[in-house]
């Protein structure tokens, strides 16, 4: 950390390149949601305070994400907050431009419609902007962040980000509601177990690039409990939170809510497992 003391403010050109990369990331990660029909309405149909809570909660999440996988190998809190602000700026602009381009936003639209539509789209775009450097950019600053990511907190946090990202992509679709009603409870139970096994297999059994090797002397059960089960529980919580934010649980009996959560929990679990491998 002493050796990798954050460099003085990068020259303007570097910042422009980083910003362009962030836009690239925002588009790549934001596009599936930008082109999902339900998302055009959700922004102004959902309860405004839930949207506000979501946008506000994502700010500290982005700041922590900056620590693990941001534009710069930042150390200081100030830099992380700054990175989160930039990611949101890029996210909002990318979302607004995308919606304008598709003629979903027009200049005569009411302010509450514009704010709702753009704000909900800005969140995945901002995550994409933040991840752009980690995924698309140069690998030179990777080492310090790699070390941070390998900590327990880092692994769990990134699993949560992966879960959030995939859950957010799939939660707005009607298919989740339909699947949960078509499946029996036994299907849901088996899906739970499959999700758990799949997460564990993804990370430890299948030969993936960037695969985490299980440290010797640590029992498989310990790893399963400390990482896989925790990541799955987190994936379920994230899935529930996203469904609740979109109003997909309102008026629904708890048992039925839970089936929806488990259905969305499957992609969320995949995202959580994949995040640990890819990021």
């Amino acid at each position: 950390m002493t050796a990798a003391a954050s460099p003085a403010r990068p020259p303007l050109r570097d910042f422009a390149i980083a910003l362009a990369r962030a836009f690239g990331g925002a588009l790549v990660f934001g596009l599936p949601i930008l082109m999902t029909q339900e998302m055009w309405h959700l922004g102004f149909v959902m309860q405004p305070w839930r949207l506000a809570l979501f946008v506000a909660l994502m700010f500290p999440v982005l700041a922590v994400l900056a620590y693990y996988a941001g534009f710069e190998a930042t150390v200081r809190l100030k830099d992380c907050v700054l990175s989160a602000c930039i990611a949101y700026a890029v996210g909002f602009v990318a979302a607004a431009l995308g919606l304008l381009l598709f003629n979903q936003l027009t200049l005569g639209d009411s302010l509450d419609k514009v704010v709702g539509m753009v704000a909900i789209q800005a969140v995945p775009a901002a995550i994409g902007a933040m991840l752009a450097r980690s995924q698309l950019g140069q690998q030179s600053e990777e080492r310090t962040e790699e070390v941070r990511r390998d900590s327990y907190g880092g692994e769990v946090f990134l699993a949560g980000i992966g879960a959030l990202f995939l859950a957010f992509n799939i939660a707005p679709t009607e298919e989740i509601l339909l699947l949960a009603s078509t499946m029996t409870v036994w299907h849901a139970l088996i899906l739970c177990l499959v999700s758990l096994l799949m997460m564990h297999g993804f990370v430890y059994a299948v030969e993936f690039r960037g695969q985490t090797t299980m440290p010797e002397g640590v029992s498989g059960w310990s790893e399963f409990l400390r990482l896989t089960v925790v990541a799955y529980a987190l994936a379920l919580l994230v899935a529930y939170y996203v469904l609740w934010t979109f109003g997909r649980c309102d008026g629904i009996a708890f048992g039925e809510q839970l089936i929806r959560v488990v259905v969305l929990g499957w992609p969320a679990a995949l995202g959580a497992a994949a995040a640990r491998l890819i990021l």
């Binding site: 849901a188 139970l189 739970c192 089960v229 799955y232 529980a233 379920l236 839970l258």
Partner: peptide, 14 residues
């Protein structure tokens, strides 16, 4: 906490 949440989910579904 994680194990508790997952087990509670399974239990409630059953």
């Amino acid at each position: 906490l994680g194990a508790g949440l997952v087990l509670a989910t399974l239990g409630f579904l059953i």
